[in-house]
Amino acid sequence: MPQIAQLLETYSSQIFWLLVFFGITFFVVGRGMVPKVLDTVSLRDKQIADDLAAAQSARDAAGEQEEAWRVRENENRAAAQALIADAKAKAAANTEKALAKAQEGLDAQLAEAEGRIEEARNSAMGEIEGVAAEAVQDILLKVAGTKVTKPTANKAVKEALNG
């Protein structure tokens, strides 16, 4: 085993050169370069974290604006609906008024017509009584040969018709 067989001749050279090269590596790479590499990494991590935070805050701001927009939109909608309801109510009132007016006119016409019918019926009734009284006088004259005066005949007809 050369590690043991050559130990006495080589240990000093091995240790010396290892210390030299390990030392060079330690100071040049370990102390010189590695901290810079680690700095770069942590700088990048920081940048990524900052960017993420910025994105988050932008997102929050967007959310807030959307919320505000939603509130405004709801207000607008409520206002529009109030306007519609108002217009509806007004229209309904107008219609009602017009209907009432029309009803009034119709009622008046109806009453007038009823009055005219009543009048016509009365006059017709008077005529029927007159005709009936004359018919009674004629019938009595031809059948019984008796003459009755007009008022008597009228009276008898009125009694018979109105029962």
């Binding site: 080589t10 000093s12 050169w17 040049v28």
Partner: peptide, 20 residues
């Protein structure tokens, strides 16, 4: 103390250079 530049030393040097 003997500090001969050996084949072992050579590979330490190569390691150092490659690592740098």
């Amino acid at each position: 103390m003997n500090i001969a530049f050996t084949n072992s030393t050579l590979w330490m040097a190569i390691t150092t250079i490659l690592l740098v």
